[in-house]
């Protein structure tokens, strides 16, 4: 049996988990290609105009998978990955949106991942998936636990300076080398599925590295410290990625060796509109730049802004030395 996993959205955080899980059930996992021009164009055609760029891109990936011989396509309903927090309303309706707008889909595995209260419902869903592959309780549990173990390995890799996406690539057998120590130290924040998708972010992270920056993303930081900083906000931020971004920004702001902070937001993104606002108000020690992008953003403009920002940081650093 072949299961397709779109290389978008949750892929950038959870691919190792689900790949291991499905392989543990005896399936072959097929992914779409890395986002490219064609993915974007397909996505723009199939999603509604008002959707945010990452969702459109996801539609492009699903479209691509539709042309393959698949038994299933995995589009989970990612409601919540931790206690009393969410990702985004659009993630909660993703399988239904895809089903309504993309004809000719293979059967969708759309289990609901909602850990906002407990994991019981998820476990039930997982067992149901296992049964579709003819596997019993024990095998399914084992596959899932193995998946979790692989995923944790990636999280550990991140602490060595890799982004989550790079960790996933290393896990998947690719070789990734981090650039040697650089002169500027920049914190880069945003939703991983836009930040780490080289098409969506126009290769933001590598560009910064080429400009002589050591890049830090939220997964590189000590998670306990990130949470502690996020806890300083009067009302708990109920978006998981948003909370980490706020905590990460405050933490980076307080670290002497950090030179500047960049936040990558998407046009029309709900959480970004609030989180970006909060961060730009609360970060006061370091220079802060907010980049807002969508499918119409020109690469040249982005490069110019990045260069100007880095120049400014270099000059600032020279004065302070």
């Amino acid at each position: 049996m072949r299961v397709g996993i779109p290389r978008s959205l949750f892929y950038f955080y959870y691919f190792p988990l689900w790949k291991t899980f499905f392989e543990g059930l005896g399936a072959t996992v097929v992914t779409s290609s890395w986002t490219n021009r064609q993915t974007v164009e397909c996505g723009l055609l199939s999603a509604v105009d008002e959707a945010c760029f990452p969702i459109k891109v996801c539609f492009g990936h699903v479209k691509e998978l539709c042309s393959q011989e698949l038994d299933f396509i995995f589009i989970p309903r990612l409601v919540s990955v931790e206690n009393r927090s969410y990702i985004c309303p659009k993630f909660m309706g993703l399988p239904d949106m895809v089903r309504a707008l993309i004809p000719g889909l293979p059967e969708i595995i759309d289990i609901t991942i909602d850990l906002s209260r407990n994991s019981r419902a998820l476990e039930k869903d997982l067992l149901k998936v296992g049964r579709r592959f003819g596997k019993d309780r024990r095998v399914t549990r084992l596959a899932y636990n193995q998946g979790l173990a692989e995923w944790r390995q990636c999280i550990r890799l991140c602490r060595q300076g890799y982004t989550m996406a790079e960790a996933v690539r290393i896990w998947d057998g690719e070789e990734v080398t981090l650039p040697a120590a650089n002169s500027l130290n920049i914190g880069v924040l945003g939703h991983g599925y836009s930040l780490y998708d080289r098409m969506i972010s126009m290769n933001l992270i590598d560009r910064l590295r080429q400009l002589g920056c050591q890049v830090q993303v939220v997964e590189n930081l000590d998670q306990a410290l990130v949470e502690a900083k996020a806890g300083e906000i009067p009302k708990r931020v109920f978006w998981t990625l948003g909370r980490k971004a706020v905590g990460g920004a405050l933490l980076l702001d307080s670290q002497p060796h950090v030179d500047g902070i960049v936040y990558l937001a998407c046009f029309g993104c709900g959480p970004d509109s609030m989180i970006g606002e909060m961060i730009s108000r609360k970060v006061y020690r370091k220079p802060f730049m907010m980049l807002t992008i969508d499918e119409h953003t020109g690469e040249a403009g982005l490069v110019t802004r990045l260069e100007a920002f880095c120049d400014m940081l270099q000059r600032k650093k020279a004065i302070n030395l």
Binding site: A47, V48, E50, A51, C88, P89, K90, M92, G93, D96, M97, R99, A100, L101, G268, C269, G270, S273
Partner: peptide, 15 residues
């Protein structure tokens, strides 16, 4: 404009 839950609903409306 940009209302997230309504974008989900809008996507489903054609069907």
């Amino acid at each position: 404009l940009t209302c997230m839950p309504e974008i989900v609903a809008q996507s489903i409306l054609p069907s």
